[in-house]
Simulated scan of single mutants.
Amino acid sequence: MISYTIQEINDLLKGELIGNTTNNIEGPEQLQNAKNQHITFIGSSKYIKYWAESEASAVLVNDNLTVEPGDNRAVIKVKNADLAMAKVLELFNPPAPEFETDIHPTAVIHETAKIGDGCKIGANCYVGKDVELGNGVILYPNVCVFDETTIGDNTIAWSGTVIRERCLIGSHCIFHTNVSIGADGFGYRPSDDGRGLTKIPQIGNVIIGHYVEIGANSCVDRAKFSSTIIGDGCKIDNLVQIAHNSVMGRSCIMAGHSGLAGSVTLGDGVIIGGSASIKDHTTIESGATVGAGSGVMNNVKAGETVLGYPAQDAKAMLKQWVVMRRLAKK
């Protein structure tokens, strides 16, 4: 069992230690569930009231909050309790699943594929013709990487992930279970005889930058032509849809069940809330935020926050909701 003294944890965080505890810390836990071997955190004043009832031996708090340690308990004041807790979580992070052999004998690897140093390829993986894997790439069991795809150093693909042909993947990316990269974009037009639908060929690819993380069961479709692009540092939640020819700038965030229709453009640092939908050929400029459940029909300016369905300026929408609530009470 890994454990640390409160002094060792504070040395890592470089916070202000108030009080002390002789209990070793064996892991982090939520305030109300914590026991005396745990450390917890408080990032908002509304949670301070739970500290007195908690059994935790230590707590991380934002430095603008006042929290008394109590008997055999310690408080560590830090600038940002959430970020400090992330460092604590790293201390107790269990190791990833181990590979008994670097390349499992059931993996199918085309003779033209180039495999970098230190790669690990699990059972029943498929690596196609002219694929290039950089150094330290990890493919967990049942991952497929199709022809002419390139994957950069230290990228990880968890089981069930499928990366289609001709995609370009950066380094230090993480694709969680069942991610789909490079499936055909959704393109159909009524047939000439008006009796069916004609499929539009999708001949482009997907380009993903460095340090991108994509959650389980999310899809990034290939472009009709040219590329669907995910910029460096983007973080994409579970069950997210990114349609053909969309372009995301750097360090964008998309929460679960949100989606981009075709040819959407996001600037840098855009935040898309859960279940939000973005209409095709829409541009959301850098630093903008789209509230959860919103439907964006028009372009969004840099730094703007929009909300609602159809989405509009968040303050204006909130005022409308207040008026509607008042009318409903009459």
Results as ranks from 00 to 15, higher is better:
238 N>Y: 08
143 V>K: 01
166 R>I: 04
115 I>C: 08
220 V>W: 04
293 G>F: 04
263 S>Y: 08
45 S>A: 15
103 I>W: 07
288 A>I: 03
69 P>K: 03
216 A>Y: 08
157 A>E: 02
37 Q>H: 15
126 Y>G: 00
215 G>K: 03
109 I>K: 03
49 K>Y: 01
54 S>M: 00
184 D>L: 07
314 A>N: 11
246 S>G: 08
223 A>P: 11
93 N>E: 13
149 T>W: 03
109 I>F: 03
165 E>H: 11
32 Q>V: 13
176 H>D: 13
314 A>S: 15
52 A>F: 01
156 I>D: 02
5 T>E: 01
74 A>F: 07
215 G>H: 10
184 D>V: 10
255 A>E: 08
298 N>C: 10
173 C>H: 04
173 C>Q: 05
210 H>V: 10
121 I>K: 00
229 I>Q: 06
25 I>D: 01
26 E>V: 05
321 W>I: 12
327 L>R: 11
31 L>H: 06
226 S>A: 15
316 A>I: 12
275 S>T: 07
51 W>H: 04
323 V>A: 15
227 S>H: 13
130 D>A: 04
316 A>L: 15
20 N>W: 03
172 H>L: 05
180 S>A: 14
330 K>L: 09
242 I>W: 10
162 V>W: 00
266 L>N: 00
289 T>P: 00
299 N>M: 11
30 Q>W: 09
173 C>P: 02
34 A>H: 06
300 V>H: 14
156 I>P: 00
